[in-house]
Design a protein around this nucleic acid. Sequence first.
DNA 1: AAATGCGTCAACCGCCGGAGT
DNA 2: GACTCCGGCGGTTGACGCATT
Length: 252
Amino acid sequence: MLKTVDMTSSSGNRSVARKITTPCCTKMGMKRGPWTLEEDEILVSFIKKEGEGRWRSLPKRAGLLRCGKSCRLRWMNYLRPSVKRGGIAPDEEDLILRLHRLIGNKWSLIAGRIPGRTDNEIKNYWNTHLRKKLLSQGIDPQTHKPLDASNTHKPGEEVPGGQYLLEPNSSSHTDDTTVSSGNGAGKISNSVFGDEDFGFCYDDKFSSFLNSVINDDPFDSNIPVLSQPLQTRDFIVGTSSSLGHDQIPKDM
DNA sequence: AAATGCGTCAACCGCCGGAGT
DNA sequence: GACTCCGGCGGTTGACGCATT
């Protein structure tokens, strides 16, 4: 059931109408819009004291008029001490490009490999900078191939340079090419991994593979995943949260 | 100086999968 | 197995600031 409500942003007078469906956002009295310094301080001090997690009950416990999702997002994307502020460095940009070419719009996976960067930040940077940059260079941002040739290869087909293409819309939760996030299972179809269904996932080889991408050698022959399709049991796919920054190679 | 256009990015939405019951 | 709760993800929106007219 959808219902539309009128809401006024806390930061302006312009009212907006949105379709509200999620329970946490239908609660009356919940504040929306940009966070104030005071709210930030409350959230930070509460998490320092109580730790992360139990997001849905956190606002009530902390005395915030925000939904749990909003608190989590604010913490993850802005308030966490490990979040790096400032512009994306050229080496970070290069890494984003290479990882995106490999795994598509898996922002959390990409973020998990770039210290201090959040999935939201990388997604924004991609949409506002890199996408346009590639387009201006005549490169399809989705396939990373020349635009005029982008229709000549089917998704999953090997392309010059040893790269493989993910299926279109690989970002969808429901398609067959999802690279699983979190501790969920997923499938990378016709990619470098072969047409494998990753119903069970283990970390080491995929992690090594991403590390090799980070280290500019995605097709290192020492990495078995690249010389032969991996078996389902060979993978686990981490996320920005499950792949902590302490797991990122120091030599990045 | 005012109006308009455009780019950026914080925040929100809808959905999904896992865990617990 | 069905259901609910929760955390997390990717896509999208819109407020805001800057540039241009």
